[in-house]
Amino acid sequence: MDQNHDDTSAFARVLLLIGSPRAFAVLVVLCAGLFVADFLYHKHPYFEVEEVPGFYAIYGLAVVAVFLVAARLLGGVLKRPEDYYAPNDVASEPYPDESRADG
């Protein structure tokens, strides 16, 4: 709604930039820059694998991809309706109104 839009403060609008397409472009440039930077300094690794240029970049990307796939697969197996354990569980309960306690 327009009224809500006006309520959004300048500060909030700055934070909203994090989700913008421009931020994605910045992220891509940052990633590229960090990858290149890996060739420019002297390493003192604990293990050989760290000497691979861009090891942390490739490893980070791959790990997240693997976990996302695993989560998708397992999600299909492990998800149940919200009232699965009801009434012994809070998952399907509304959160009690705390303002009552203020009265």
Partner: peptide, 8 residues
């Protein structure tokens, strides 16, 4: 690198 590529 680790953080940026994970976010990517």
């Amino acid at each position: 690198q680790l953080v940026a590529f994970a976010v990517l």
